[in-house]
């Protein structure tokens, strides 16, 4: 393989391998991807973990075959149940959301071939034991503020019914409970209750994403909440609800 390369290129491959400890194949991939700039190749290498770990495509294909629907090239609920079983996790476990996020899954309870194989590849795993080993680190990703933000916003589109702009309330409540049990937002139960009593309609993406901003920025006593602000009206009404019901102290 190296023989096709020029002398300078060979040097760079050697250098790259020496520094990163990566295989020749990975080094070549990274360097080609950056048009033979070493710096660029490092960037690629460190920002795209999938190329660091070598995954065997054949193994992945076999895994996919194990879970996919017999008639369609997709993994459906049954496949996912089996996968959870193999991984020994509850399908309701939030780690499955993180996994779906890595797979860039378009819809809940479904993986396309591309999503499944691409996702595992990017995680650098090609077997169930490897994936199971990976789960704690996936779980840990939720602690990262930035990643949580991405996973949270991903969850909206993922959980939404196909063709709908908004997220059905029940699904939204489930997702919130799941996500905020991780994030420990003390008002989550009040929020869910409020929505059921006062709203009882689907949730828009704006409300969904602004709620995280609210959780992140407004303290549970609401002392820094500004009613003149651009909070979605549902959040305004939630604040009223909290005050009315004496859950938070009355504001001046």
């Amino acid at each position: 393989m190296m023989s096709k390369l020029g002398r300078g290129q060979k040097d760079k491959v050697q250098q790259f391998m020496a520094i990163t400890g990566a295989s020749e194949k990975v080094a070549l991939q990274a360097l080609k991807g950056s048009e033979w700039h070493l710096e660029g190749a490092f960037d690629i290498f460190y920002s795209q973990p999938q190329i660091r770990a070598f995954t065997d495509t054949r193994h992945l294909e076999e895994l996919f075959k194990r879970y996919k629907d017999p008639d369609v090239d997709m993994v459906f609920v049954e496949g996912i149940s089996l996968l959870c079983n193999d991984l020994q996790v509850d399908p309701q476990d939030i780690v499955m959301l993180v996994l779906s996020w890595h797979m860039k899954a378009a819809t809940m309870c479904e993986f396309s071939r591309q999503e499944f194989i691409g996702g595992l590849q990017s995680l650098g795993v090609d077997s169930i034991p490897k994936l199971r080993e990976k789960l704690p680190s996936l779980r840990n990703e939720l602690r990262d503020e930035h990643k949580f933000h991405e996973i949270y916003n991903f969850a909206f589109s993922w959980a939404r019914e196909k063709g709908q702009k908004s997220l059905a309330l029940d699904t939204a409540l489930g997702m919130w409970r799941l996500l905020f049990s991780e994030k420990h937002w003390p008002l989550v139960e009040h929020w869910c209750q409020f929505l059921q009593v006062r709203h009882n309609k689907a949730i828009s993406r704006d409300t969904w994403s602004q709620l995280l901003e609210f959780v992140k920025n407004i303290d549970p006593q609401l002392s820094n909440y500004d009613e003149e602000g651009a909070w979605p009206y549902l959040i305004d009404e939630f604040v009223e609800y909290l005050t009315e019901n004496g859950i938070v102290p009355t504001r001046k």
Partner: peptide, 23 residues
């Protein structure tokens, strides 16, 4: 506010990525 949110849903407006008070 409701109308603004509706217009966001209908893709007439969007919130600024950095500052959610800005449309």
């Amino acid at each position: 506010k409701k109308r603004i949110e509706d217009l966001i849903t209908r893709d007439y407006l969007e919130r600024d990525k950095e500052n959610p008070n800005l449309y």
